[in-house]
Structure formats: structure tokens, C-alpha cells
Write a protein that binds this DNA or RNA. Structure first.
Lengths: 359, 359
DNA sequence: GTTAGCACTCTGAATGTTTGAGTGCTAAAG
DNA sequence: CTTTAGCACTCAAACATTCAGAGTGCTAAC
């Protein structure tokens, strides 16, 4: 198993790290390739341009920097960005007004998790000037609060599920044999008696597990209930709110039409983005900051120039989803990391409160 | 009032019309400005290039064509396209396989109008290679079939409305004073007794209109009901499904980054697009084909290069919404018109059937 | 180990040249 | 009077050339 020292990876010495930091920082703010003169002019390192040149050549050999052509300045490689976010950048403090803006947003009354997260993605887009992302809580973490059935037509049944995150979901199920009105009443009662508090995702599994406890008439009800529950697409309702993707066009890298099309590809790639940020966050120890994805790291074809900064939000200290921002590879990571982390904290707090006082 | 002859507007003679047709047709297929030589080469008009040149100069004076610069070929102006779609193009027949593909899509069982229209926009995008549009039926045409209330929390009430188009909608309302369980039961019954068949859009208006009929205890219920209904955002739930907008990037006109950004603007402009195609379809007699919008006709700022071909769909011969395709100004109108019209017919049929057998 | 200096490289902007498509006009033919 | 052929003219796009500026790598001196 790979093990990382948090502060002192051995392969770069102090000066190299300073210069790598300078190059990445400069490139992030100006979007221009960085030359040796620029470095000495903008950062006071106490060495001459020639020295910087030598170090930069070394960094290029090591794979941290890259030249677009001989005689242009250098730009960071993915590896260079990686080193920067992992060891060099110090997460920037948010200003008071930024903090207040975020706090204020979360003062408003919301009482279901989905709208909270939609608002969050909106907020992130606004404040970061990148695309804001927010995944709805994983189905597995939602507990059934209440189930209601409603006959829409003789064979068509509406199933309403209220979860502990305040979300009311509506599904439609088809019965082979029509249900009479008092069938529905008893079925509803049966479902609520037996499935209160069960994870929404595994309603039918929960019921199946208890199946042998039921006898005779209750058995019949259980079978009917299963028939209904199996029909519902409960497992795949996590969705991704994404807002403000068009802000990416402001960035110079998307002047190029080919790059710009990547942004449009986002609309179709939402599923893959979800699974990617999730798996990245779960992959422990591969990087100090594994919830930053640089250039989507070649994992989604056609999104090579896109980066994501994500953070998990939690309910009662258990991760239930991710929020984040998405932008060009050249992003102000140090600032955005602060924003995302801070926002995630608030989402966690509000959701925990929402679940807390359950009756 | 302006009156149009369907077949023979007077301002162009036969030859001019042939040449206008040739230019528009050629430009639509190739995306290249059309010169006099091209016209004689590709269309057998029996005249020489010089003659064509003279006619084209006339058409330019009349405002139908336009030169991007002296000594380039001509391209149609909006007015030119308008004349083309109104009088020159003959709507193309769909091939058997195209017709079958559409028919097959509508064989699948759907039982609520919203999913039907989502599928429709998907189908249109697929078959037209443009963006597919489908507006959900206007709230005004949906009649209340059933209302259910569900207490989510002491002060939070879920309101479910099932309409005659099979759509089940969920709203949340907040009560000042908590309702007891039998309050809810009687309120539900009251609502259903008095509002069955009322247009969803005007539920509270309908109830208000009948208010003086109610006395004493029923009066109290009516007041409570009104309190709830007024809270629901019933009037503005028409939405636009749009799919496949990224296909527009295949078109050469969107190579240019500035134009390409228009496509992204679509995401924000959905409301304006709805009202635009609706008002266009309603404006009677201004054009023979008033459900074709060319270059959005300068009406939505920032979407000058976008055109829309729309068609209304009907329930029992009454228009309740629009479907269509959206693409660059230079679009194969004759083919797409056929597709859109044909599809609209099917949507109408399925919806009418859905409403038909009401009980 | 660090720095100054210098020759060298490469891009991007500016400028000029050429080519080809297309036009407008005129004069001749129908 | 309409149509056509011919010709001079225009313009954009493609290509070539030049030039300045930024940056590098290398060498020799500190």
C-alpha cells in the first residue's frame, strides 16, 4: 500500500517546490504560459532567471511541467497540478462577506433535501463562477417515513413514499388484478407497520427478509406488497444538479470550439461524473486530496480539460452525497476548495437537523 | 387585415421564384453562399449564368437575398426564408421507414401526458438531428380528476392532484394551524365533491365562484380549502422538454464560438421560447406557415441564428400544446415540417384517446 | 552552485501576393 | 425587349515573408 507523507514528499527540494508553486499559481491566474523572467518578476525568490530556468528544466524532466513548444513558457502537467493541490497550495481563507453569503443562503427554510441541494448547486455556481454540482442524497441513506397508496385507475396505483429527508416521491405501479378500496387501506397499513424506517432503496429486500415471520392473511398482504414494491424503480433515483455550466465559456481555454464542445458533453455525461467523483472520494489514501479530480484524469473520454473539486456532505457523520464545482483544468483550486468545503459543512448541518427531530 | 394568396403572391414572377427556390435549397444543403454558376450547374433552368445574375441582383434589391460581401455568392435573408417556407417549398413526403419509426414509438403504452411528451421530444431529436421540443399540455386544458391531501408534518400538507391527462402532481402547502386527521378527511371529500372536472389552472377561482352557495359549516371548509389552494403554484407548471441541443454543434454555422454560445443560451431561454412559439401559432393569417419561426425573427436577443418549426397538438380538436424542432436558421424545412406535423398528429391521437374514456 | 551573456528557436502579428469565385456592366445576338 | 457572352473588377481566403518579442539552453565567469 502506498503511503504519503503529508508535508514532505522526497522527490522535490525546497527551491523546486517554490518554483513549481510559482508556475502553477501564475498560470492559474493569468492563463498564460509562464517563463523564467515572469517567475522572478512576480515572485521574490532571491535567485536569478537563469537559475529558475535550470530548475524549470529539471521539473520538466520530472514530468511536472510541460512546454507547448520550444521557446515558450511552461504550463503544469496533470502531475504538476496534482502535486500542487496535494502539497503546495494552502487553502485560502474565505472573506467575511463570502462566508456570510453562504450562511445566509442556508438560513432560508427548506424542508426537503432535494430542494436544498438544488439551491446548493445554484449557490456554488454563483459564488465560484464555475459550474456548481450537487448530488442528491444516496437512496440508501434515506429511510422510509411513510408510504401511501392511491388508486388512479382500476389497474394503476400511485405509490407515495415520504422519507426522513423530507422528500415525497411518487411512483406508478400496475396491478394484474384490480385492488378494491379496502384492500388498499389494509395494504397501506401493512406497508407502514412493517417498513417504517427501512432504507428506501431496499424496501422490497427488507420486506422479503421478514417474509417468513408472516402467516396466513398477513402473508397474502405481504405478497401483494412485494408485487407492488418490486415494480418501483427505487434504486436509481440519485440525480445530479448542475448549474452555471455556461459560465465556463468565459474562460479563455474554451475559446476553442473543440474544447467548448466538451462543456456540452457534460449534459450527457452526468451519470459518469457522479460515479467518478464518488469513487474518487472513496479511494482512500491515493492522494491527500482525493476529492479533487484534475482533467477528469483521462477517465471520461472527451472531458480531458475539465476538473472537479468535490466534497462529501454528511448526515450524522455518515457521508450521503457529494457537492462540488466543475471548471477548466486551470482553476483557482485554493479558493474553490475553501468554498466547497465550507458549503458542504452547511449542507451537512442542515440535513442533520432535518433528520434529527424525527417523531 | 392582411390577406395572403396561398399560391401566387404577386411580387415575384415565375423565374424569380425558381431562382429563389434554387438558392435557398442549395444553401440549405451545402451551407455555402450560392453563386450564379452554381445555380445553373445544379438546377436545370434553361438560362445562362448571366441571366441568373441579373435575377439575383433583383432579388437582392427586393430583400430576399443578401451578399456577405461584394463578390461572394448570395445567402437568403430572413425574408427570403420566409418566402421559401410560405410559398416555395413543397413539404417532403416521409419515407415508409420514417413513418414506421414514429408510429412504433407511439405504440408503447404511456399513461400520462408528461411522459408522452418527454418521449416525443426525444423522438424528434433523434429523427430530425436537431433539438427536439415538446411543451407539456397547458394547465388550462387539464381537468381535475381527483385531489388528495396528506399530512406530512403538523403544519406541512402534501396536495396531490390527478388530472384527466393522467398526470399526478404533488405540491406542498403550509398551514397556519395544524389540521387534525378527520379535518383532512372531510376537506378532501369537500374538494373532490366540488372541484371534480374544474380546470386545474383555475381551481381556486372555481371555488371562489361557487363560494356564495355554501353555508355555515361547508363555508368553513371552503375557506380552509381556499387557503390551501391559493398557496399552490398551479398556473405556471407548463414546461418545455428540450432534447438533443448538442446536435446543433454538428452544423458548420456553430463552428464560430460566438454562435455556439447561442446554443447554450437556450438552456436559460426556455420560457421565452415557449411563449414565442405559442404566440406565433396563435397569430393567425400573418403567414401561411406561422408555426415556423425563422431566426427567432429577432425576438429573442441572443438567438438570432436559431429557427423553430412547431406544430400544435390537440385534444378533441382543441389545441393544448406545441411540439417542434429547433435548429440553425439554415434548416431542411421541407423535411422537418413533415416530421413535425406527422408526429403532432400522433400525439393528438394518443392524448385524445387518453382523455376519451373517462369514467 | 549561481549568474550574466549570448546565440538560437519559435510564435504571433503585420504585411504583401496570388488565386479563384463571383459580380456588374456592356455590347452583341436572338 | 430579353438573353447571353465577354471582360474588367472586387474581395476573401490561402499562402509566403518579415519582424519583434519572449523564452530557452549553453557556456564561461564569479
Amino acid at each position: 500500500m502506498v503511503f504519503f507523507m503529508k508535508q514532505h514528499p522526497q522527490d522535490l527540494n525546497e527551491r523546486e517546490r517554490q518554483i513549481l508553486h510559482a508556475v502553477v499559481h501564475s498560470y492559474i491566474t493569468t492563463a498564460e504560459p509562464v517563463g523564467s523572467r515572469t517567475v522572478v518578476k512576480r515572485f521574490d525568490l532571491g535567485v536569478s532567471a537563469a537559475t529558475v530556468r535550470n530548475v524549470m528544466a529539471d521539473l520538466e524532466d520530472l514530468g511536472y511541467l510541460q512546454q507547448l513548444h520550444t521557446s515558450s513558457g511552461r504550463v503544469p502537467t496533470d502531475q504538476g497540478y496534482r502535486y500542487y493541490v496535494d502539497y503546495l497550495m494552502h487553502v485560502q481563507q474565505l472573506t467575511l462577506s463570502e462566508r456570510q453569503r453562504i450562511e445566509k443562503e442556508f438560513m432560508a427554510r427548506v424542508d426537503d433535501a432535494d430542494s436544498l441541494l438544488r439551491q446548493t448547486s445554484h449557490l456554488l455556481a454563483l459564488i465560484s463562477h464555475q459550474a456548481g454540482l450537487a448530488e442528491t442524497p444516496a437512496e440508501g441513506s434515506a429511510l422510509t417515513q411513510r408510504i401511501e397508496l392511491l388508486s388512479l385507475a382500476p389497474e394503476r396505483l400511485a405509490v407515495l413514499i415520504l422519507d426522513n429527508l423530507g422528500r415525497l416521491r411518487t411512483y406508478t405501479a400496475y396491478m394484474e388484478t384490480p385492488l378494491r378500496s379496502d384492500d388498499i387501506t389494509s395494504l397501506t397499513r401493512f406497508l407502514n407497520d412493517n417498513l417504517h424506517g427501512a432504507p428506501v432503496e431496499r424496501l422490497s429486500a427488507s420486506l422479503e427478509a421478514r417474509l417468513r415471520e408472516f402467516m396466513d392473511d398477513r402473508r397474502r398482504l405481504a405478497d401483494q406488497a412485494l408485487q407492488v414494491l418490486r415494480m418501483l424503480p427505487l434504486e436509481r433515483t440519485t440525480q445530479l444538479y448542475m448549474e452555471g455550466a455556461n459560465q465556463l465559456f468565459e474562460q479563455p481555454e474554451f475559446r476553442d470550439i473543440a474544447k467548448a464542445r466538451q462543456v456540452f458533453g457534460l449534459l450527457d455525461a452526468q451519470d459518469r461524473i457522479i460515479s467518478l467523483i464518488r469513487s474518487a472520494a472513496e479511494a482512500e489514501g491515493t492522494h491527500p486530496r482525493n476529492s479533487i479530480l484534475i482533467g477528469i484524469e483521462g477517465k471520461i473520454q472527451g472531458l480531458e480539460d475539465i476538473s472537479v473539486i468535490a466534497a462529501p456532505y454528511k448526515v450524522n457523520d455518515e457521508t450521503v452525497g457529494m457537492i462540488g464545482v466543475l471548471g477548466p483544468r486551470r482553476m483557482p483550486y485554493s479558493r474553490l476548495t475553501a468554498i466547497v468545503d465550507y458549503t458542504a459543512k452547511f449542507v451537512s448541518r442542515v440535513l442533520t437537523q432535518m433528520v434529527g427531530p424525527k417523531k
